[in-house]
Design a protein around this nucleic acid. Structure first.
Length: 533
DNA sequence: TCCGCACGGG
């Protein structure tokens, strides 16, 4: 184009750049943009907007803003198209406050006419930042103004509500949309379907799917992937395979996500050979297994105690041009610990750092838990000390694991001192911490101490869960203190919690030998009246 | 010729 005579007009250059961006080749687009500038080829505000968008998509929002400065200098008037990529880029970079500031500035200084896309960008950004309530407010502002919400806006909000597990408000909004005459599209339905599936409400998802077909909105690849994944997660991997076949009959081509979901589904059912078959069949479909595929299969093998298969895949990754990521390492670490290969795990932990994979929260949890479970509680405490010395963000979970490990190892004294050191580290015990301590005390028969901890946690507005009540009730039952047991049993029931299987078993065992005991009789009657009748 | 919505792993 540069060498052509006469040179193509700026519109032709813009079209080319725009297509390149749509192909997700932003770096190429930006390279060409720089070339265009260098060669002195004239640009327009469109060219500039395309470049701003490319920078924002490539997570270089600040370059986008410097281009915006240039944009103003050239005397161009920005439009919604200029600002929405910048807003989106700020949200994507987790710069929520700056995004909201920019939006306010656009409104107050009337930098451009707000349109449905700008609103959509901000609403989506707020939803993804976890502020669905604020997104909803903005939606209501729109409704009162002249820029009416369209399908995109409704879909964005419905999706945001679904992600917050607020499926019923999402459905309500869906009907509101229908009443207002805004027509839902495949994305709207897919968002709702995903919301229902994520709450295991598959029957309702099926009904909605029928409604969708009735409205002549047809599921696409993403819709099918969501349904397949949901069936797999419910353990219905054979049904998922059926859905995949229906998908193919409808001329849709399963992609890497489809296959990865199916592999995960098979692994969940311990059908490793079937999972492996999928993995190997991908090559014939010209689909290259990605890091997800490896992590899923490695996880499957680890859970199935086939750690050597997992290690084999792990070592195969670099040969396939894939670098194991922190999830891969975490999965393998867990697998090694499950196989009692602590030494190998410790080595791998060092190795991951050498190759530049930074351990994360899960890595540390895995390490602490793995060491404790293999009888290396002291080593775990040392590990915890090292974390502290490194100045890393300490998380209460790390201490929960250590305290639980100490209790299980019969080192209640050490657990107590670790527990009481928490405030000095700026950490608040949570329900799990208290639970571990209470369980530890009950195991040693120290019921009074357990009671005190229970009282303290309630004073701190940390409410005991059913695990804690069960432990205490069993503790008192085992000691023959039926009155105390009944009191905590009552409290548990009042809080809507129920005794678990092992508590009930213990109750029944005791009652069988002391059939005339009224306290036991009453406790059993609350949950298994048919037994005492 | 430029901008906004849905899917997978520990």
């Amino acid at each position: 184009m540069v060498k052509m005579n006469p040179q193509p007009c700026v519109r032709e250059f813009n079209k080319l750049l725009s297509h390149i961006v749509k192909l997700k080749e932003c770096s190429t687009a930006l390279f060409l943009f720089k070339d265009i500038r260098f060669l002195g080829i004239p640009v327009s505000e469109y060219t500039m907007s395309i470049a701003i968008n490319s920078y924002c998509i490539s997570n270089r929002v600040d370059y986008g803003f410097s281009l915006l400065g240039w944009f103003f200098k050239l005397g161009y008037v920005p439009t919604a198209t200029t600002f929405s990529p910048l807003l989106k880029g700020l949200f994507r970079g987790n710069r929520i406050d700056e995004a909201q500031e920019l939006f306010k500035k656009i409104v107050s200084e009337e930098l451009c006419q707000l349109n449905v896309v700008v609103y959509g960008t901000v609403i989506d950004g707020l939803c993804k930042a976890g502020n669905t309530a604020r997104a909803f407010e903005l939606f209501r502002v729109m409704e009162r103004g002249s820029c009416m919400p369209d399908t995109y806006i409704y879909s964005t909000l419905i999706n945001g509500l679904c992600k917050d597990k607020l499926i019923d408000p999402a459905v309500k909004l869906f009907y509101e949309m229908l009443e207002k005459g805004v027509v839902p599209d495949v994305v709207t339905y897919t968002s709702l379907l995903h919301g229902l599936c994520s709450l295991s409400r598959l029957q309702e998802a099926k009904i909605l799917m029928k409604e969708m077909l009735g409205c002549k909105v047809y599921p696409d690849l993403i819709t099918f992937n969501i349904m397949i994944d949901a069936l797999c997660k419910e353990g219905l991997v054979d049904d998922a395979e059926d859905v995949a076949r229906i998908m193919i009959q409808n001329n849709l081509v399963p992609d890497i996500i489809t296959y990865n979901s199916l592999m995960d589904g098979y692994c969940l059912q311990s059908r490793w050979d079937d999972a492996r078959k999928i993995f190997e069949s991908m090559a014939g479909k010209r689909i290259v297994p990605d890091i997800f595929s490896y992590n899923i299969l490695i996880n499957g093998y680890c859970k199935g105690m086939k750690i050597d298969y997992a290690l084999h895949l792990f070592h195969e990754m670099p040969q396939k041009g894939l670098a194991p990521d922190v999830t891969t390492y975490n999965t393998i670490l867990q697998g090694l610990f499950c196989d009692c290969r602590c030494y190998a795990a410790l080595e791998l932990f060092d190795e991951m750092q050498v190759v530049g994979q930074k351990p994360n929260f899960f890595t540390y949890c895995n390490m602490l838990d793995g060491l404790c479970r293999n009888g290396h509680v002291q080593r775990a405490l040392l590990f915890l000390d090292e974390l502290e010395k490194k100045g890393l963000d300490l998380h209460i979970n790390y201490f929960n694991i250590a305290i639980d490990g100490l209790c299980k190892a019969g080192k209640l004294d050490n657990a107590r001192s670790l527990f009481s050191s928490l405030p000095s580290k700026g950490l608040q015990p949570d329900v799990v911490t208290y639970g571990a301590m209470i369980k530890g005390c009950c195991q040693e028969g120290l019921l009074e101490e357990a009671k005190n901890i229970l009282m303290n946690m309630k004073l701190k507005s940390c409410f005991p869960n059913s695990l804690i009540y069960n432990v205490i009730v069993r503790g008192f039952l085992a000691k023959g203190e039926f009155g105390e047991a009944a009191m905590f049993h009552e409290e548990m029931v009042d809080r809507g919690l129920s005794p678990d299987y092992s508590t009930l078993t213990l109750l029944l065992d005791l009652w069988r030998t002391r059939e005339n005991n009224h306290t036991l009789h009453n406790m059993i009657q609350k949950f298994a009246p048919e037994i005492t009748m």
